[in-house]
């Protein structure tokens, strides 16, 4: 038991995680490229036209995966931040910082593609309904998290302060998810849920899920890329960083 704990903490240290992350990046990047290409193929050439919305519905293939990832990445980020707060490990906070910009990007893409979908179907780019507003709050939570990190000079203090913000913001994620059930919204209910069969044609659903996997693989690849840079930036003064056989060339 104690041995396993020590091992776990060893991989939790930057010097052993740095090379491991470096080896994982190409695999996740390749998986993202393959699933992304397959997803786009299904989205445009396999999935049929929608009976009500015509071709405009194809925005679903970026909108729903981006929205899922924006929520999922927030939870993962908050878990790392919380772990850092409790265990005081260096790697946890770095992982949380590495996820935030990618999560913010997906929140932005969710709002952007949603606006472009809303205009031709609902008749408006934006309404202040509970679903759209809570997703906008999520976007601001990501920005607030990054701003707080940038504002505090002492990295350890910045880690703790931003971790508290990240954990408080978790409340917003179930609000986004259930907003369409709890309140009257312009946004429609979920097409895919755990409690009942999806209300989509099979090929449409497949395309959406494959795109979601692609975004997921992409997120892991870029988060690992970013955490490696954060490690180099923060630990440049340590022996392990100086002894790395890597240079800018």
């Amino acid at each position: 038991m104690s041995n396993r704990l020590i091992n776990w903490f060893r991989y939790g240290s930057p010097q052993s995680f740095y090379p491991l992350a470096g080896r994982m990046v190409p695999w996740f990047a390749a998986a993202a490229a393959v699933t992304g290409a397959a997803g786009l193929w299904i989205a445009f050439f396999v999935a049929p036209t929608d009976a009500q919305q015509g071709e405009a519905y194809r925005i679903i293939f970026v909108h729903v995966p981006a929205s899922w990832l924006s929520m999922f990445l927030y939870i993962v980020m908050a878990c790392w931040a919380g772990l850092g707060l409790v265990l005081n490990t260096r790697l946890s906070a770095m992982m949380a910082h590495a996820i935030a910009p990618t999560g913010a990007m997906f929140a932005f893409l969710s709002l952007w593609s949603g606006a472009l979908w809303g205009r031709p179907t609902w008749g408006t780019y934006w309404v202040w309904d509970a679903r759209l507003t809570s997703e906008l709050v999520l976007f601001f939570l990501y920005l607030g998290y990054m701003a707080l990190n940038a504002a505090i000079d002492d990295p350890r203090r910045a880690d703790r302060a931003s971790a508290v913000l990240a954990l408080v913001g978790v409340v917003n994620v179930p609000v986004i998810y259930f907003s369409v059930k709890w309140w009257n919204t312009l946004h429609q209910g979920a097409s895919v849920s755990l409690t009942r069969a999806p209300s989509m044609a099979a090929t449409m659903l497949t395309g959406m899920l494959v795109m979601a996997i692609a975004f997921w693989m992409y997120s892991i690849a870029v988060a690992l890329m970013r955490v490696r840079s954060i490690m180099l930036e923060r630990e440049a003064h340590t022996d392990w960083a100086r002894e790395l056989k890597e240079s800018a060339a």
Partner: peptide, 16 residues
């Protein structure tokens, strides 16, 4: 042309 929705569909996919 995406059935007339080209601006919205391509606007979403290209920005992504």
């Amino acid at each position: 042309s995406m059935g007339g929705y080209g601006f919205y569909v391509w606007g979403s996919f290209l920005v992504t």
